[in-house]
Design a protein around this nucleic acid. Structure first.
Length: 563
RNA sequence: CGGGGCGUAGCGCAGUCGGCUAGCGCGCCUGUCUUGGGAACAGGAGGCCGCUGGUUCAAGUCCAGUCGCCCCGACCA
């Protein structure tokens, strides 16, 4: 490819709307252009990288025996109603109607479709296990798309589904996917970790996430020297709860004008934050739920959802609360609350003489004790674990780092095969629901994650495996230099080197800046040292070599550098 | 969804107390010249000032609505 013909418009300044390095650099270096919030066009450079990422994923999938298919993006509502997810997945689905006013969705995922696909034609245990996958666009109407391709509304994903007649068979395949995913991470050149995860709206039992470390990541990873790693959505709290060896005092309703936040309450009443109980109201399938957590801890929304087994759970809006309870947020509490399910964190159990909202504007109760002043029937772990809290395996303090979730694998079990009534005939002549697994990988997100992890102040630093071009020939000079550059270019092309020649009639500075910005792993400069019979070969990571201006010698050196 | 901010040339921005012909830098085109880190000079093209309506002698500028984009948001970051 010739740079003079490549459609890769680079920008001299960062685009105004870019928040994080990958978003700024991918736009600046001419990889992507935004078309709407969370919706992007991939330009030739990005397309080349995406194809390389796809091919790595494809190779690893094929190696473990998964077969590639391609399912439609437009999916009929009935399938989603059958599985119960038309409502569960809710506002995140892009929905549309056809001319007959029938409901469709742009698929956020494909469990329903794949299950329907195999419904009538995967009928015997003799056909199992089976793994199918596809690489296709997905649509999720995020509340707030951001971070460029890291949280887009339209994105490219590899999704795979496996069907089994036993848990042992699922375990075996699950392990194969886990190993394949590790290889993908290594091949695309990312620092990563594998964490146990909550299975979210997908459902099922065991689940692992493959997370690439990055400061701009949205997942908080907690890990330990002992090898344990987990997401803060899931890591169980194993810390000590403070014990209060004191008598129960008389409960009082006190006037606390305009004192709403835990910090304000603590200051106003001159008590420690941990002597306050946070009361939060959620709205779920079965109405309101109040969650109670110690004031110095953060409520873990994912833990609550999974405890209640209700993915539709949302925080109640201030207006709803005011309407239905007659109290502004900030003054909520469990006392005098009727007909609302209360779930409390274990930590609250050990608290004595604590503070809660008064269920009345500008009032809080002090010296409250559960059991005496209100009843809690359900106790569970509802806390977001922080770095420094003890490791659930070995007890040492956990460390924290942020990461980007690229891969997620699930043991679904029979959730979809049962709700959608998809069965096979087993050896014993009985119809049984499939045991299933599903395995996602964010292709376009990987593009962003690599840039997020591998860049410097000058631009992107692509690993060879996913670079849009492995080598750029930068021509700086006149006739003789140009002639040699062309000769070298043709030689390298013939020898299957993934090479771009920067033959543009622009000043050397522009070529160097663009080469660094775009991030080609290797740059061959044919310039001032050419009159001494040398060319310069420089890796984007810094190492510099002067090599004889001879095609074979250069090719030999590239062979070393591109290994 | 709620709050805030912003929509002016391809990109980044100024102009916005109503006033003249809408401007700057970069990019783009032509020419001269230049060639190791985003050169120089000369000439040039490019705007429904997001959209709709209103106020006014006069609107990029004021008002209302609307669309889009960005940020923030519940004791969640």
């Amino acid at each position: 490819m010739r740079f003079s013909q490549l459609y890769a418009p680079t920008l001299r300044e960062n685009p105004a709307d870019a928040e994080i390095p990958s978003q700024a650099l991918l736009q600046r270096a001419g990889f992507i252009r935004k078309i709407a919030a969370g919706i992007y066009t991939y330009l030739p450079l990005a397309r080349r990288t995406l194809l390389k990422i796809e091919n790595i994923v494809r190779e690893e999938m094929n190696k473990i025996g998964a077969q590639e298919i391609l399912m439609p993006i437009v999916q009929p509502a009935e399938l989603w109603q059958k599985s119960g997810r038309w409502d569960d997945y809710g506002p995140e689905m892009m929905k549309l109607k056809d001319r007959h006013n029938r409901d469709f969705t742009l698929g956020p995922t494909h469990e329903e479709l794949v299950t329907e696909l195999v419904k009538n034609e995967l009928t015997s245990y003799k056909q199992l296990p089976l793994s199918l996958y596809q690489i296709a666009n997905k649509y999720r109407d995020e509340i707030r798309p951001r971070f460029g391709v890291l949280r887009a509304r339209e994105f490219i994903m590899k999704d795979a589904y496996s069907f089994h007649d036993s848990w042992e068979s699922l375990d075996e395949t699950y392990l194969k996917f886990k190993e394949a995913y590790s290889k993908i991470m290594e091949r695309v050149g990312l620092r990563y970790t594998i964490i146990e995860a909550s299975s979210g709206a997908i459902g099922g039992s065991e689940s692992h996430e493959f997370v690439a470390f990055a400061n701009s990541g949205e997942s908080n990873i907690l890990y330990c020297d002992c090898g344990y790693a987990g997401s803060d959505e899931r890591v169980p709290y194993k810390g000590e709860y403070p014990k209060y060896d004191e008598d129960e005092k008389q409960m009082e309703l006190v006037y606390t004008p305009n004192v709403r936040t835990v910090e304000q309450v603590a200051e106003f009443l001159n008590v420690e934050v941990r002597r306050i109980v946070k009361s939060l109201i959620f709205k779920g399938r079965e109405g309101y739920v109040m969650a109670l957590v110690p004031g110095d801890k953060e409520l873990n929304f994912e833990k609550l959802k999974s405890y209640l087994n209700d993915q539709s759970l949302q925080m109640a809006l201030p207006d709803e609360i005011l309407n239905d309870f007659g109290v502004p947020i900030g003054f909520l509490g469990p006392i005098g609350l009727n007909n609302v399910r209360i779930v409390a964190d274990y930590g609250v159990k050990y608290m004595k003489n604590f503070v809660v909202g008064g269920m009345k504007k500008d009032y809080h109760y002090i010296n409250v004790n559960h059991g005496r002043d209100f009843e809690v029937k359900e106790w569970t772990d509802l806390i977001v674990v922080q770095p420094g809290d003890p490791c659930p395996v070995c007890g040492k303090p956990l460390k924290g780092e942020k990461g980007i979730e690229l891969g997620h694998i699930f043991k679904l079990g029979t959730k979809y095969s049962e709700t959608m009534d998809v069965k096979y005939m087993d050896k014993d002549g009985k119809l049984k629901p499939f045991i299933m697994g599903c395995y996602g990988w964010g292709i376009s997100r990987t593009l962003g994650a690599v840039v997020e992890q591998l860049h410097d102040e000058n631009g992107i630093i692509w690993p060879i495996s996913v670079a849009p071009f492995e080598v750029v020939i930068t021509v700086v000079g006149k006739d003789k230099e140009k002639q040699f550059a062309e000769k070298l270019y043709n030689y390298l092309l013939q020898n299957k080197v993934d090479v771009l020649i920067d033959d543009r009639e622009v000043s050397p500075g522009v070529k160097f800046k663009d080469a660094d910005l775009i991030g080609f792993p290797v740059r061959i400069t044919i310039g001032r040292s050419f009159k001494n019979g040398l060319v310069e070969i420089k890796k984007r990571t810094g190492e510099l070599f002067n090599v004889e201006a001879n095609e074979e010698k250069i090719f030999g050196k590239l062979g070393e550098l591109l290994k």
